[in-house]
Amino acid sequence: MGLPMAGMAAAPASPPTILVVGDSLSAEYGLARGAGWVSLLEKRLAERDIAATVVNASISGDTTAGGRARLAPLLAKSRPDVVVIELGGNDALRGLPLAGTEDNLIAMVKAAQAIKAKVLLVGIQVPPNYGGDYMQKFSGVYETVAKKTGSAVTPFLLRGIADVPDAEANFQPDRIHPLASAHPRMLENVWPALAPLLKR
């Protein structure tokens, strides 16, 4: 077998795969198909001629424990280059211990990193009626996990949507799930941290 010729061009890298593991905020709950921020991400990538495949494995109602339990087969099937983890909101709604949420997120990040995937944590915040102390501790979980694992983080998916005057106008009648009109802003919140991870 001969040696490679000097100057021979390397084989082009295959397009990266982005795996999104989230809950109803990423699963287009209550929206027309194609209106959610993950679908808008696919459209943005296409418009900017960024070759990438997006696999949306989000399930409405999922918790960090649920995401942790189903992550291994998702990683094995899609072999992602980037994993976006948008989970935790349902942990808070169910009053689950913060320590468990943090532990589950760390386990998910490490599982993704074990196959050389880059990870983006997408955080959520709970409403003020949960109490200021709990609200602060919960929002801090994402930054803590990011520091412990060296992953990227978007602190608050609903920034500019849930934390503005007349925020109710941005939500469906359940006051939990954003309207389709809010999803472009959700993408804008995620994009600055996600875009650098797509570079080889």
Rank of each mutant, 00 (worst) to 15 (best):
A180N: 07
P4H: 09
S181T: 15
M8W: 13
K110W: 10
K199A: 07
A167K: 12
P196M: 05
P127Y: 12
V84N: 06
I85G: 03
S14K: 14
N129Y: 10
D91V: 05
N104H: 15
V38D: 02
P196F: 02
F171N: 09
A65I: 04
A193G: 01
A169V: 03
A107N: 09
T149S: 08
V145C: 12
I124K: 00
W191K: 01
V141S: 00
V84Q: 09
P184S: 12
A27S: 14
M108E: 06
G160S: 06
G132F: 11
A99T: 11
A9S: 12
P16H: 08
A169H: 01
A35C: 08
T149I: 08
V126H: 05
S14N: 11
A114G: 13
L71V: 09
P15A: 13
T144S: 10
T149Q: 05
G7E: 15
I124H: 02
G123N: 01
K148M: 12
L25Y: 01
A65F: 06
G66E: 07
A65Q: 10
L93V: 15
L187Y: 06
A180I: 05
A146G: 12
G140H: 03
A167L: 11
V38P: 00
R44Y: 00
K147G: 06
Y142C: 01
V109H: 08
N170P: 00
N56M: 15
A114I: 10
A27H: 10
A92T: 15
P155A: 04
T101L: 14
D133L: 10
R79V: 08
L197G: 01
K116H: 15
V153T: 09
D91Y: 04
A180P: 09
R185K: 14
K43D: 04
A114S: 14
S139H: 07
L105Y: 04
L157A: 04
I115M: 13
V54Q: 07
A112R: 03
D166K: 12
A182Q: 02
W191L: 02
G140N: 02
A52P: 00
K199R: 14
A92H: 10
D166P: 00
P196L: 04
T53R: 12
P16I: 13
S24N: 09
L74S: 05
A13I: 12
P196A: 11
V141R: 00
K147Q: 11
M108V: 08
P155L: 07
G123C: 02
D23W: 05
L96I: 11
V190Y: 00
S151V: 03
A52T: 01
V84P: 00
G140M: 02
S78M: 07
G160W: 00
N129P: 14
P80G: 13
D163W: 08
R185I: 12
L19T: 05
T101P: 15
G132M: 15
D23T: 04
A146T: 06
P173V: 02
E28Y: 11
K148G: 06
A57M: 08
A10F: 13
I59N: 08
M5N: 15
A193D: 01
R175L: 15
I115W: 09
G140S: 03
G2F: 10
A92L: 10
D133K: 14
D91H: 11
K199E: 04
L71H: 08
M135D: 08
D174M: 06
V122Q: 01
G67E: 04
